[in-house]
């Protein structure tokens, strides 16, 4: 099972909402990965063990793994394109 990490500013609401939505999409599409919601302050620790980073905050840094737009999963706008990027990262 591959790991995808998602982080938001307070860790109270948005990251978990996105995580639950993406986990459902992964399951429905039989993609062998799961999403872990973490606090933004600890996200760097999870990068090495993850295949993609779903960001709900502005990303100023370069990451060695694909960065996916998390707001797309929150609003549904542009969700298909972002999900495809995610699946590609899992299958890479």
């Amino acid at each position: 099972m591959k790991q995808i990490v998602v982080a938001c500013g307070s860790g109270v609401a948005t990251s978990q909402t996105v995580a639950s939505k993406v986990n459902r999409l992964l399951k429905e599409n039989n993609v062998p990965a799961e999403v872990l919601a973490v606090d933004i302050k600890s996200v760097d620790r999870y990068i090495p063990s993850s295949v993609a980073y779903i960001a709900i905050t502005k990303v100023d840094k370069e990451y060695p793994i694909p960065v996916i737009n998390g707001i797309a999963f929150l609003t549904g706008v542009g969700q298909d394109a972002e999900f495809k990027k995610l699946v590609d990262a899992v299958n890479a």
Binding site: T14, A19, T75
Partner: peptide, 10 residues
């Protein structure tokens, strides 16, 4: 929270 946020955004 997760459920509530999804409901609101929808």
């Amino acid at each position: 929270h997760v459920e509530l946020l999804q409901i609101l955004v929808m």
